[in-house]
């Protein structure tokens, strides 16, 4: 986990550098990790917010993408359709993972970034639109997770623009 953390840290520093010191023409990459990248979504992994909520957009622009601080499943490793608790701009928000980088089984899509859609505790999404395609398996998974007395996660599906 250390290398991914350090990488994330360097990345955020880089983004900040680019943002603040635009006069600097080249920023050198100092890779000090020695093992391949860990694609597991666990506590402290960074995510990319893909809805158009103000909070998410600001956090991404500042170069401080949300971190997972809890994965609500048994093994603690998030995959497509899992509900996570995120730390974003000093707030705690829940989110639905809608795209993962890790290797996927046959017929399930794998994306180039780990995507999340922010939701309220009752399942209502913060944004009004998801700007990237989401896997169609979410339909089944989120429907299964929704209970009559709990949160209604299927509202996320209604703001999706494209399914793959």
């Amino acid at each position: 986990m250390w290398h991914s953390l350090s990488r994330i840290f360097t990345m955020s520093v880089l983004v900040n550098l680019v943002n603040t010191a635009t006069s600097c023409s080249t920023v050198l990459w100092r890779g000090f990790h020695t093992s391949p990248a860990c694609h597991r979504l666990q506590k402290l992994s960074r995510l990319r917010v893909v809805d158009n909520s103000e909070l998410g957009k600001q956090a991404m622009l500042e170069g401080k993408p949300p971190r997972i601080i809890q994965v609500y499943n048994k093994n603690g490793i998030g995959t497509t359709g899992d509900i996570v608790l995120c730390a974003i701009k000093g707030l705690k928000k829940k989110g639905v993972i809608v795209g993962v980088k890790a290797q996927q089984p046959v017929l399930l899509p794998r994306t180039d970034s780990n995507n999340v859609v922010l939701i309220e505790d009752n399942g209502t999404p913060l944004g009004t639109r998801i700007v990237v395609p989401v896997p169609s398996c979410l339909r089944t998974i989120l429907k299964k997770k929704t209970h009559a007395k709990g949160a209604d996660y299927t509202k996320v599906l209604s703001i999706a623009t494209r399914f793959v």
Partner: peptide, 24 residues
Amino acid sequence: ASITLRNVIDNLGVEIKLELYDPR
């Protein structure tokens, strides 16, 4: 036997692995 298809949809790279002899 399987293949992997890749496309960039809405600026997001998406890949799908398929088995060639899958009845689906």
